[in-house]
Computed example of a mutant assay.
Amino acid sequence: MNKVRYINNNLMIVLFWAFIATILIFQLLAVDEYDLHKAIIYSSMITSTFAIYVHLVLRKVIKRYIQTKRISSLILWVFITAFIASIILTLEDYTIDSFFSQDWNRHKETMLPQFFGMLMATILISGIAYSFELYRHHIETLKATQVLKDSLNDLKVKSIRQQLSPHFTFNILNNLQFLIQKDKNEALKLLSQYSKILRYYVYESQNKAILLNDEIAFLKTYLELEKDRLKDEAQVDVNISIEPNDLKIAPFILSTFVENAFKHLSTKHKWVSVSIQYKGNKLYMNVKNNHDDKINEQPKGMGLEQVKKRLQLIYPDKYILEFDKTNNVFSVQLNIKFE
């Protein structure tokens, strides 16, 4: 990819100077003393000198200024290099005119005006080159900053996953303990489903994004297992309406809210409600559970705080997350906009 970009940049540079040379040829042909042959030679030499000056001399001066930020040094070096380049260009102009006219003394009186003309042209080109180089440096800085930002975000997401991993795993093992104590046969049957959940967590949590349908399937399995674990101890209402699609979502964004609801259930009259719908290009999720104020002063656990950070990193300006605690009912409303 970098090699292709390098080739494309060189091609654009060649085309640019070829365009300048062509324009100069047409301008010279408008002057009576220039024929096509002389115009091509003059244009080629002058354009080549300008190109060498810009790419081999001026760009190095400008890059050095960008690193040091010394404007006085930049002005001094640009003037010196422009002065030298103007002398060379004036000599080239004199040589070409004298060669075609075979009169080496004829054009001496015009050298000084030509020099100042070349100096003005060189300074103008220096200003244009400086603007382009500064713009290029700005773009490269933005790209480098974005790469660093993306890398930092990846590190943050990985760190958050590592923090969530033991929390989720301990809940799974705790649920399995309840099942084994109640009914060994049922525990063996449901153990296979728990294995699927753990396998899903281990492998899918390593991906930046997974299919929304896979996350929903995982969530349904988790809800069924919680229903089996709690039996008649809790009322679990589930309303999930997701049509098959190819949308992708960050893993465990949705399940964390459901897990948190079961973790902070009230000790009496346990109740959990999970509603997930997808309309247009937005996903709507609402999770509610009742809790005991005296036991759970802050039902928002570490898992919710970590998922908030993930949402901020992965879906900036594309999500709405609201918490509400009213009459011993804790509610989470999450909306995610998909592009």
Results as ranks from 00 to 15, higher is better:
residue 125 I to A: 15
residue 135 Y to V: 01
residue 123 I to S: 07
residue 154 D to Q: 12
residue 123 I to R: 00
residue 97 D to K: 07
residue 107 H to R: 04
residue 132 F to Y: 15
residue 141 T to P: 00
residue 139 I to L: 10
residue 116 F to R: 01
residue 126 S to Q: 06
residue 130 Y to V: 02
residue 106 R to L: 15
residue 134 L to G: 12
residue 97 D to I: 01
residue 134 L to V: 15
residue 142 L to Y: 11
residue 154 D to T: 06
residue 132 F to R: 04
residue 86 S to G: 05
residue 87 I to M: 15
residue 137 H to M: 00
residue 124 L to C: 12
residue 138 H to A: 10
residue 116 F to N: 02
residue 103 D to G: 05
residue 137 H to L: 00
residue 104 W to N: 07
residue 88 I to K: 02
residue 96 I to M: 03
residue 135 Y to W: 10
residue 102 Q to A: 02
residue 123 I to K: 04
residue 127 G to A: 06
residue 90 T to W: 13
residue 99 F to Y: 14
residue 90 T to L: 12
residue 102 Q to D: 12
residue 113 P to Q: 10
residue 94 Y to A: 07
residue 111 M to A: 15
residue 107 H to N: 15
residue 129 A to P: 06
residue 124 L to W: 06
residue 110 T to H: 03
residue 146 Q to Y: 05
residue 131 S to Y: 12
residue 143 K to G: 02
residue 129 A to M: 15
residue 115 F to I: 01
residue 102 Q to N: 11
residue 141 T to H: 11
residue 152 L to A: 07
residue 134 L to N: 14
residue 105 N to R: 02
residue 93 D to N: 12
residue 122 T to H: 09
residue 95 T to M: 09
residue 139 I to V: 14
residue 137 H to C: 00
residue 109 E to Y: 01
residue 110 T to Y: 05
residue 114 Q to H: 13
residue 113 P to G: 06
residue 95 T to Q: 08
residue 115 F to N: 12
residue 109 E to K: 01
residue 98 S to R: 03
residue 146 Q to S: 09
residue 100 F to G: 07
residue 88 I to G: 04
residue 127 G to S: 02
residue 144 A to S: 09
residue 137 H to A: 07
residue 151 S to Y: 12
residue 102 Q to S: 06
residue 111 M to Q: 05
residue 98 S to P: 09
residue 104 W to C: 00
residue 98 S to K: 01
residue 103 D to M: 00
residue 120 M to T: 13
residue 152 L to W: 03
residue 122 T to V: 14
residue 115 F to G: 13
residue 119 L to T: 10
residue 99 F to C: 03
residue 141 T to I: 03
residue 88 I to W: 07
residue 129 A to W: 01
residue 119 L to P: 12
residue 87 I to E: 02
residue 152 L to P: 01
residue 118 M to Q: 14
residue 111 M to K: 02
residue 89 L to Q: 14
residue 86 S to D: 08
residue 86 S to C: 10
residue 133 E to R: 08
residue 143 K to I: 11
residue 115 F to P: 13
residue 91 L to I: 10
residue 149 K to P: 00
residue 133 E to H: 09
residue 111 M to F: 06
residue 140 E to F: 00
residue 106 R to S: 10
residue 145 T to I: 05
residue 149 K to Y: 11
residue 147 V to T: 08
residue 100 F to D: 08
residue 92 E to M: 14
residue 147 V to L: 11
residue 143 K to S: 10
residue 103 D to P: 06
residue 88 I to A: 14
residue 93 D to F: 01
residue 148 L to W: 03
residue 121 A to G: 11
residue 134 L to I: 13
residue 98 S to C: 10
residue 145 T to A: 09
residue 121 A to C: 06
residue 134 L to K: 15
residue 128 I to E: 03
residue 150 D to T: 13
residue 101 S to R: 04
residue 109 E to G: 05
residue 131 S to M: 14
residue 128 I to Q: 04
residue 152 L to H: 08
residue 122 T to L: 08
residue 90 T to C: 12
residue 112 L to G: 06
residue 99 F to E: 08
residue 145 T to V: 08
residue 153 N to I: 04
residue 120 M to S: 14
residue 136 R to L: 07
residue 113 P to D: 09
residue 126 S to H: 09
residue 140 E to V: 03
residue 89 L to P: 00
residue 144 A to V: 03
residue 121 A to H: 09
residue 88 I to N: 07
residue 105 N to M: 13
residue 115 F to E: 11
residue 151 S to L: 10
residue 94 Y to P: 01
